[in-house]
Amino acid sequence: MDLLERLIAVFAENGYVAVFIALLLCGAGLPLPEDITLVAGGVIAGLGYANVHAMAAVTMVGVLVGDAGMFLLGHHYGEHMLQWRPIAWLMPPRRYAKMQEKFARYGNRLMFFARFLPGMRTAVYITAGATHRVTFMRFLLLDGLAALISVPFWVYLGYFGANRHEWLVMWIRRGQSSLWVLGGLAALVVLILWWRHSKRKQLAR
C-alpha cells in the first residue's frame, strides 16, 4: 500500500485539486489505479483535510470528465489516435480490434461494466467514441450510472477506514468483488424497471 500512502500525503497537502488532477490522469490511461486514488481522497477526508461529501462530488466530476475526454478523443480522431505514441502503447492495433469486436457484441453493457474492469476502461471509452455507434449523452448516462456505484463506494470506504489501516487494506482487496455484486444488483433493478415499463405500455394498448 505504498502507493496509497504516497497519494494520501500528496492529497493532504494539495487538497481537492490534486485529487481531481489525479483522476483526470487515471482517465487518460496512466498507470495510476483509479480505485486507490478514490480511496486516498476518502482517507484525507477521514483525517480531517477535506469534507467527505464534497470529496465525493469532486471525485465524481473528475472521473466523468476524464472518461468523457477519452470518449470525445475517440469520437473526433477515431483510428488516427492509434498512431499517437501514448495511445499506441496503451492500445495497440490488435487490442483495438478485439475491443471493437467486444463492443459490437456487448455494446451498452460493456460501457456500463467497464467501470468495474481496471485496465480496460480507457480502451473501452476510446472505442465507444471511435465507433460512432453511441451518442455522447448515452455514454455519459451509462458511465454516470456506473460511477454512481463505484465512486462513492471507494471514497466512503477510505473515509471510514482512515484510522483503521488493516480494515481498510482488507476491504480494498475485497472491494472489486463487492463492486461486481453492486453493479449486478443495479443492472438487475434496471432490467426489472424496464420490464415493468414495457408491460404497462403493452397493457395500455
Rank of each mutant, 00 (worst) to 15 (best):
V65P: 03
G66E: 01
G66Y: 02
G66F: 00
G66Q: 01
A68N: 12
A68R: 09
F71E: 01
L72R: 06
L72H: 04
G74E: 06
G74Q: 05
G74R: 01
G74W: 01
H76I: 02
H76N: 12
Y77P: 01
Y77L: 15
Y77S: 09
H80Y: 12
H80S: 15
Q83N: 13
W84Y: 13
W84N: 10
R85Q: 15
I87M: 10
I87E: 01
I87P: 00
W89Y: 12
W89A: 14
L90Y: 04
M91G: 03
P93S: 09
R94A: 15
R95P: 00
R95G: 01
R95H: 12
Y96K: 05
Y96Q: 05
Y96I: 08
A97M: 12
A97I: 10
K98M: 13
Q100M: 13
Q100W: 03
K102H: 13
F103V: 03
F103E: 00
F103D: 01
A104L: 11
A104F: 09
A104G: 08
A104I: 08
R105S: 14
Y106E: 05
N108L: 10
R109V: 14
L110S: 09
L110N: 05
M111R: 01
M111W: 00
F113V: 13
A114K: 01
A114P: 03
R115G: 04
R115S: 06
R115P: 05
F116K: 04
G119Y: 06
T122A: 11
A123D: 02
V124Q: 04
V124L: 07
V124D: 04
I126Q: 00
T131G: 03
T131V: 14
T131I: 08
H132E: 12
H132R: 15
R133D: 12
R133M: 11
V134A: 04
F136K: 08
L140I: 11
L140A: 15
G144S: 10
G144V: 07
L145E: 03
L145Y: 03
A147Y: 05
A147G: 08
L148P: 05
L148C: 15
L148W: 10
L148V: 13
L148F: 13
I149G: 02
I149V: 15
I149M: 10
V151Y: 05
V151N: 09
F153N: 05
F153V: 07
W154P: 01
Y156W: 15
G158T: 07
G158S: 07
G158I: 05
